[in-house]
């Protein structure tokens, strides 16, 4: 199901590879141009997701470090 809305995926407390897998699933559900923001407490997520986005042709538009987790926002480019 496509959605014209941006999405937030709360994967806090999930371990690798779950935050990435949740992002992969959510990305399929938003329109091109929309964003998915993953909240992850997994220490590898930021680098993992950045690399994934680069490989898949998407764009990391923001990374915010919060208390105990990161918010990583990715824009769907294709």
């Amino acid at each position: 199901m496509m959605s014209g809305q941006d999405k937030v995926v709360d994967a806090r407390g999930n371990y690798c590879p779950m935050p990435l897998m949740k992002l992969v699933e959510a990305m399929k559900e938003v329109d091109i141009g929309r964003t998915v923001e993953v909240w992850s407490s997994d220490s590898g997520s930021q680098r993992d997701i950045s690399r994934w986005a680069e490989k898949m042709g998407h764009e990391v538009v923001a990374v915010n470090h919060e208390q105990g987790y990161d918010r990583i926002k990715v824009r769907r480019r294709k």
Binding site: C16, P17, L20, M21, V24, W52, K55, M56
Partner: peptide, 11 residues
Amino acid sequence: GVLTSGAVAMD
């Protein structure tokens, strides 16, 4: 399970 997930994520 983890490696299979990662590989699928990476297409």
